[in-house]
Amino acid sequence: MKIVVLVKQVPATESKLSLAAGGTDIDRAGLTFVVNPYDEFAVEEALQIKERLGTGEITVLSLRPHAAQKPEEALRTCLAMGADKAVLVSDAAFEGGDGFTTALVLAAAVRRLPYDLLLCGKQAVDDDGAAVGIQVAELLGIPHVAVVNKLELHPEARRAVAHRQIEGGIEVVEAPLPVLITCQKGLNEPRYPSLPGIMKAKQKPLEVWTRETIGLDAETVGAAGARLHTLRLEPPPPRSPGRIIQGDPPMAVKELVRLLHEEAKVL
């Protein structure tokens, strides 16, 4: 089973963010970057599949989202977890792209790799796009199942059965391989890289591919190809300052219910 995992490097979720000059992007200086949490589920799932089948090859694939980021580090982390090889797609021409151009580049890169299964995260926790994986599948012409928290593979029959989380339940979806799965929490418990794993990762191949390697025209990618432009980033609207309700518990609760009823008008 050949598995390709799409991995994005994102700012750690506890980061304090500020805007870069121009106001259309964050300032990346001084931030800590990590493997997108949902992509960890994808890597872990790939590892468990390979362990179960006793055979297979896992390639982790990442597109550099911004010149100031070093996704090599995220890819090394995945290699240390146990992935076999890594590909970083990186080119100045990719700067300023949107979800669609990201999917276009990743799909072009995936076409150069053998795969039976594509795994990615449900959503990148920076742009919260929840789109790239699904769009990669569409561009490759393969089916997808998104927001999956349980995955069964039947390699002989070349089929997958996935449980996908929906409102109030799950959809049980069956699809032929190759299929793209976007991974949701609950699928597994991602392992931490072990010390020997970290040592071994240093020897594993990490290739860097450019726009030319994957054969895309410059005007179709990056800012030139983006379908969606960011005009500005802004802080969320300020919440009106809250109020601590004083008094002994029965009084405080009475006052709370009165405020919810009369002031907030939500009861």
Binding site: G99, A103, A131, I134, Q135, L139, I166
Partner: peptide, 23 residues
């Protein structure tokens, strides 16, 4: 932006090669 909408919208936008904004 439901389980269905968030699943369908990216595929549709990629099919139409148009812009997508989720949520």
């Amino acid at each position: 932006a439901t389980a269905m909408g968030k699943d369908l919208a990216p595929k549709l936008a990629a099919r139409l090669k148009t812009a997508l904004a989720q949520d």
